[in-house]
Design a protein around this nucleic acid. Structure first.
Length: 505
RNA sequence: GGCCCAUUCGUCUAUCGGUUAGGACGUUAGAUUUUCAUUCUAGAAAGAGGGGUUCGACUCCCCUAUGGGCUACCA
C-alpha cells in the first residue's frame, strides 16, 4: 500500500433511475472517502449506446443532491481528470486498445453475433477462450492480409483480451480477503466494439480508474466474478503496481422470496426502490421514490448505512457526519441483506421527531395547501408540536391534525353512540358557559378551571371529556383536549360545542 | 452445468474459542392516558446439518445442504 490520496468513484450507467442498492454503494464510497480525507468522483458509464436513457444522468445528479452526497469531481461539477462521461473518452480508450493489440495481449475477432450463437448452440458451455479461439475467425487464425481486407471492406469486429489458461489470479478484497480464480474459467472478454468505437465496461473501467487515480474500488458483489479480469487488465496495461484496492459489497435482497432487489419489486411490494420518483421516458410508467413518499433524506441515508454495515455499538441514529466518522469497510457484512421496509419507516419516524416544529411546519404547508387550508405559520408550528410524535411521514400529519384546521362536519357513529349520552348536550352547554368566561385560553388555565368545575359538581371527568372531544374532533382521537382548544381558540371551541349540541342533540 | 461469495431470532445484526448468545425493527402482553396514537415495562423468538481441531466451539478446518452472484459485442 502506498500513501497515495484516497480517491473513489461511483460510476453508474445511465440506463434509468438509480436503484436504491446503487445509492447504498455510492453512500459507502462517500463515507469512506470523506473519512479518509479523499475525493469522490461521479463518472457516467455510457459505453452501451443501446441502453442509454435520456434523463437518467440528470436524475442521478438530483438524487445525490437530495440525499446530501456530494461529489468532488464528476460529470456535473467538472474536475481535473475529465471528461467524466465515457462516451466522451473514445480516443483515450482507443490508445490502450491499440497498445494491447500491439503487445499481443488482445486480438481482433470478426465472428458475428449470429455465428457465436451457432457455436453456443452446438457446443455445451461454449466459451470464447484458449480452447476455442483457434477455431474462430480472428486475427490469431486469419493472416495479416485477410484481417486488413476484412477491415477495409467495412466488416465490424471486436477486440478480445487474450487470456492464458491455468493461472491462478488472486483478487485481494478488503471485505472478503483473498479470492482466487483460475484463468481457465475466464473467457476472452470483449474489450472494444468497432461498431460504436467504444470499449466495453471492463476496459473503460480500468483505463478510467487508472487515469483518474482511483485508489479504492468499492462496488457491488455482482462484480466479484469479473474482478480477476480487471486484475489481468491492470497487469496487461502495465499498471499492476498502482492497481486500486477492491471491496465488494453484499447485495440488497428482496424482502420476500429470493433474489436481489430489483427495480420491479418496489411497486409490486408497495415501497419505493428509487430515491426519487422516476417516469420512464419510453413507457411513461411511473415508479415511486422515497422523496415523494415522504421520506427525509437523512432517514434514507441512515437506514441504508445500517443495511450491510454496523458500528459495533448499539447506536442506531447517525447523522451523515457521524457516519463519516464511524464508517469502516472492516465492519461491512459479507452476506446479502433483505430489504426491510418496516425498519425504514421506523427510521423516518425517528427523524420526524428530530425535526424542529418550524421545519416540519414548512414541510407540512404544501399538504395544507393541497387541502385548500390556509393557516398562520405559528399555528401550524403549534400543531406540529402536538402531533409529530404520532406519525412516521409528513403526509400522515393530515390524518392526525386536520381537525385543527377544519371543524368536524360529521361525528363518528360508533364514538357518538358510545360517548354521547342523554345529558351530554346539557353538560356541554354548561361547559360552554364556563369557557366563555375564561379570557386566558391557555391549556393550563382551561384545564384548571374545568377540573375545578367538574369536581365541584361531582361530574364524571371521562364522560365529559370524551363528549367534548367528539364535539371538537368528530372522532375519538387526537392530543390532549386542553392543548387542542388552546390552538383553535375560544371562539372556534364554542362554535364546535354548539354545533355538536345542535347535531347530536 | 461451471466458477465465485455467503449462512446467528420472521428481518437487520453484535459476538473476533470460555457469554444466562446482546441490541434494533416487527410481533405478543401489560402499564400510562379523557380518546386515538405515542411512550414505558415485560415476553416469545436464533447459531442449517454432519464430521473434525481443541480441555472447551456460533466462533477455526472439511464435507453436505441452502441462499446469492456471475457465466453477453449490459453495466
Amino acid at each position: 500500500m502506498t500513501n497515495k490520496k484516497v480517491r473513489v468513484r461511483f460510476a453508474p450507467s445511465p440506463t434509468g433511475a438509480l436503484h436504491i442498492g446503487g445509492v447504498r454503494t455510492a453512500l459507502y464510497n462517500y463515507l469512506f472517502a470523506k473519512q479518509q480525507g479523499g475525493d469522490m468522483i461521479l463518472r457516467i458509464e455510457d459505453t452501451d449506446s443501446q441502453r442509454f436513457v435520456p434523463g437518467a444522468e440528470a436524475y442521478i445528479v438530483e438524487a445525490f443532491e437530495w440525499l446530501g452526497i456530494k461529489f468532488d469531481e464528476g460529470v456535473h461539477v467538472g474536475g481535473k481528470y475529465g471528461p467524466y462521461r465515457q462516451s466522451e473518452r473514445r480516443d483515450i480508450y482507443k490508445t490502450y486498445v491499440d497498445q494491447l493489440l500491439s503487445d499481443g495481449l488482445a486480438y481482433m475477432a470478426f465472428d458475428t453475433p449470429a455465428e457465436l450463437d451457432v457455436q453456443r448452440a452446438a457446443i455445451l458451455n461454449f466459451q470464447y477462450d484458449a480452447s476455442t479461439r483457434m477455431q474462430m475467425r480472428n486475427s490469431l487464425t486469419l493472416s495479416t492480409e485477410e484481417v486488413a481486407a476484412l477491415v477495409a471492406a467495412g466488416n465490424q469486429y471486436v477486440v478480445r483480451i487474450k487470456i492464458e489458461p491455468n493461472e491462478d489470479i488472486v483478487v485481494n478484497d478488503l471485505i472478503r480477503g483473498k479470492v482466487v480464480f483460475n484463468s481457465l474459467v475466464l473467457d476472452d472478454k470483449v474489450l472494444y466494439k468497432s461498431a460504436d468505437q467504444l470499449p466495453t465496461y471492463h476496459l473503460a473501467n480500468i483505463v478510467d480508474d487508472h487515469l483518474m487515480e482511483v485508489s479504492h474500488v468499492i462496488r457491488g458483489e455482482e462484480w466479484l466474478p469479473s474482478a480477476p479480469l480487471h486484475v489481468l487488465l491492470y497487469r496487461f496495461l502495465g499498471w499492476e503496481d498502482t492497481m486500486p484496492s477492491f471491496a465488494h459489497l453484499p447485495l440488497l435482497l428482496k424482502p420476500d422470496g429470493n433474489g436481489k432487489l430489483s427495480k420491479r419489486d418496489g411497486d409490486r411490494l408497495g415501497f419505493p426502490v428509487f430515491p426519487l420518483q422516476w417516469t420512464d421516458p419510453k413507457t411513461n410508467d411511473i415508479s415511486s421514490g422515497y422523496r415523494e413518499n415522504g421520506y427525509l433524506p437523512e432517514a434514507v441515508v441512515n437506514f441504508l448505512a445500517l443495511l450491510g454495515w454496523n458500528p459495533g455499538t448499539e447506536k442506531e441514529i447517525f447523522s451523515m457526519e457521524e457516519l463519516i466518522k464511524t464508517f469502516s469497510l472492516e465492519r461491512c457484512s459479507k452476506s446479502g441483506a433483505k430489504f426491510d421496509y418496516e425498519k425504514g419507516k421506523w427510521f423516518n419516524h425517528q427523524y420526524i421527531q428530530l425535526q424542529s416544529n418550524a421545519e416540519l411546519a414548512t414541510l407540512f404547508l404544501p399538504v395544507l395547501a393541497e387541502k385548500g387550508v390556509e393557516a398562520p405559520f405559528e399555528m401550524v408550528e403549534q400543531v406540529m408540536a402536538l402531533t409529530k410524535e404520532r406519525v412516521s411521514f409528513v403526509k400522515e400529519l393530515w390524518d392526525q391534525a386536520s381537525f385543527f384546521f377544519v371543524a368536524p362536519t360529521s361525528y363518528d357513529e360508533k364514538m357518538a353512540k358510545k360517548r354521547w349520552k342523554e345529558n351530554s348536550a346539557a353538560l356541554l352547554a354548561e361547559l360552554a358557559t364556563l369557557l366563555e368566561g375564561i379570557d386566558d385560553f391557555t391549556a393550563a388555565r382551561t384545564e384548571g378551571d374545568i377540573k375545578v368545575w367538574i369536581e365541584a359538581k361531582e361530574y364524571n371527568l371521562g364522560g365529559i371529556m370524551t363528549a367534548f372531544r367528539l364535539a371538537l374532533v368528530g372522532e375519538g382521537k387526537g392530543p390532549y383536549i386542553f392543548d387542542i382548544i388552546a390552538v383553535i381558540g375560544k371562539e372556534e371551541t364554542l362554535a364546535r360545542i354548539q354545533r355538536a349540541i345542535d347535531v347530536l342533540k
